[in-house]
Design a protein around this nucleic acid. Structure first.
Lengths: 215, 215
DNA sequence: TAGATTGTTAATCGATTAACAATC
DNA sequence: TAGATTGTTAATCGATTAACAATC
């Protein structure tokens, strides 16, 4: 990729959508697409799509468009999806289990080594062959297995403590489902999934759409 | 609120964060806060916070700041959280169950009337006193109960069909967890929770942070 | 070659930040 | 009153869109 230019978060967050549609196109045996066709699929403008992609290199060809397979591979590389990741999930409630169960997670190279919980009723159970372990063994397990990715699915109250244990033992990326802003050291990447905030945004637009029709 | 001004999506998506921190402050018996203190909590600039709030009215007081309780109530109203909503969840897998189980959902006025699934093993079971019903009864149930909100937790393949049934029977807001862009009629509000896209953004930043240290 | 479509620069638009008068 | 902090206008910054030359 080009040196020196800072790429904005807005651009990065559009890449996974390109990646997904390109995957769909490949599944449909379509091996070529123009920025204007991709615009119709994604809802982004053709100009924006070309701008976005050219942050990382010239993947297209004048007069032709983009090769879907090549572009899918390239965006995958940019997003880091060409590598395998060792993952643990902390909190084996519904959300933790949902993630452990999600097949797409494996297909993109995320290998869930274990779930952790403090509930004795859950410890020892298996989700998709993945054992639920005692949260007391967390630190040792991370070090021993050189785990890189952690998913936080614990309640709000304990999530920061769990995150601290994870980062202190070498985890470098956290995917957080607890409804709070987790603090991490500078070298650790974090992505907060803000379900509450997503829901409240929906109620806002719903209320706005229906404010004249309510009795 | 002020008439005529179009409020950007970026502003709306910051409101839930204010709302959350204000709730925390109230729980800590703090009843006053300035934009600069709120800035430290949220990470947004004080100027931006004042701008955001003034889109909806002058909730503060010069020389004093904002009354946490009042601001919490006002933002709640803006987001539509002062009302109750009748909700159904389609798909009673892990994610559907997680949402049905999430207590915060009820506290903010979301009443889950039922879950729906096509799996006979799940039909008839209860999650937190909420029955899992046969997806065949979906249309009739929505009409009979005047359900307003639908949560889509079905697999990618069936999600658009489910969404169509919901909107055809009068549901006006969809919270979608399936990894695709669901199409809805204009008058329906939709919020897609894009977990894949969130995860891939994390891998991007993780890869970027660690690209020099990898062997 | 002619047509199509990219890559890229320039123009526009909108969002964020800064500044400060108003006022509690 | 003096100090603090909002509400709001103006300035800046960044992101999106438009335009078109390059080129396959």
């Amino acid at each position: 990729m080009k040196k020196g230019k800072r790429i904005s978060d807005a651009v990065i967050r559009r890449l996974p959508k390109y990646y997904r549609y390109l995957g769909d196109l490949i599944s449909s045996d379509i091996n070529r697409i123009s920025s204007s066709e991709l615009s119709k699929l994604t809802g982004f403008t053709a100009s924006q799509i070309r701008q976005d992609l050219n942050n990382f290199g010239g993947f297209g060809q004048q007069g032709y468009g983009y090769d879907t397979k090549r572009l899918h591979v390239e965006i995958g590389k940019i997003l880091g999806l060409d590598k395998k990741y060792k993952v643990i999930i902390v909190g084996a409630g519904n959300i933790g289990q949902a993630i452990a169960n999600y097949a797409g997670f494996y297909e993109e190279g995320f290998e869930v080594l274990a779930l952790f919980d403090k509930n004795p009723k859950l410890i020892g159970l298996k989700i998709r062959d993945i054992e639920i372990k005692d949260v007391d063994d967390l630190a040792a397990f991370i070090k021993r297995n050189e785990v890189e990715f952690g998913v936080i699915c614990t309640p709000k109250e304990t999530s920061q403590d769990m995150a601290d244990i994870l980062t202190e033992n070498g985890i470098k990326a956290l995917w957080n489902f607890a409804p709070l802003d987790i603090k991490v050291p500078e070298h650790v990447s974090i992505e907060d999934v803000r379900l509450n905030e997503s829901l409240y945004t929906l109620t806002y637009y719903y209320s706005r759409n229906n404010e004249n029709t309510e009795e």
